[in-house]
Simulated assay, not measured.
Amino acid sequence: HDFVLKNLIFVVFSRAFLYKRFLSDEECDHLINLAKGKLEKSRVVIDDDTGASTESEERTSSGMFLSKRQDDIVAKVEARLAAWTFLPEENGEPLQILHYENGQKYEPHLDFYFDQETLKNGGHRFATVLMYLSNVTKGGETVFPMWEGKIHQLKDDSWTECAKQGYAVKPRKGDALLFFSLHLNATTDPTSLHGSCPVIEGEKWSATRWIHVRSFGKRQSGCVDENESCEIWAKEGECEKNPTYMVGSEKDLGFCRKSCKACSA
């Protein structure tokens, strides 16, 4: 924890924290290289009852999930996240690596859930950590439209019009932004609404760690599907496109092994 305290440079404001140089350049480059060649179009949830998702113009990035503790570097990053947030490592989802090209964005959204199906696995997302893996020449800011602090943040022409609509953080390689989606009394916080502004010049790479209120991702034994959309996703080819989530490995079982025919019933 001494490492964390020495490197926490400043607090953005209430319940949101920016950690300068949380990742080294080498760690950033390693995470990007793990994702290259494996990216798929990002999706958004469209059914609050089942958690089913689809591609959308609201979210135009591409991304992929790593496996938990996939290698020594990923394991060290996950352990460091637990030390900084004081939240159990087992409550975190696998790291999601995201890539934004010119003009790509993610409209303002909330990270806590509305669908009961998803809540069964770990409960609400309690906190989010956004780790910036690259510098962006212009754009790509993380913006919080509902935060009261936005009126006190002065912005010059280096900020995009999107970023000027709320409190914003510029993506800087190695920095990590932690914010909470739930209040201390466990009720959902609508002011955690946030988005990724369009990239104007350059490209943006980031890694997201969602942290739940309970342990996340402990797979059931047996040949089962753990999401009602597994059969649909399998028919759409997700078993091959996203094997880490759908099938998994012997050490970290996937969510849709039955529909992917990766096991015997």
Rank of each mutant, 00 (worst) to 15 (best):
Y19G: 04
E26I: 04
R69N: 15
S61F: 02
N7K: 13
Q70E: 15
E57S: 09
L23S: 04
D48F: 09
L23D: 03
R15M: 07
L8R: 09
S14P: 08
E55W: 00
E55N: 02
L31Y: 01
S61L: 01
K68Q: 08
S61M: 02
A35G: 11
S24T: 15
Q70A: 11
Y19L: 10
M64I: 11
L18D: 08
L8H: 10
E27Y: 01
L31F: 05
T50G: 03
K41S: 13
K20R: 14
S62K: 14
L39T: 05
T54S: 10
T50D: 03
L39S: 05
D49A: 11
F17C: 09
T54V: 05
L8S: 14
G63H: 06
F17K: 07
V45S: 03
K68V: 14
K41M: 05
G63Q: 13
F65C: 07
R15T: 11
I46V: 15
N7A: 10
E40R: 13
N7H: 15
N7Y: 11
K38Y: 13
R59F: 02
L39K: 06
R43Y: 01
K20L: 08
L66R: 13
T54R: 08
R21E: 15
T54C: 02
V12N: 08
T50I: 04
G63S: 15
D48N: 15
F17P: 00
G37E: 09
L39W: 08
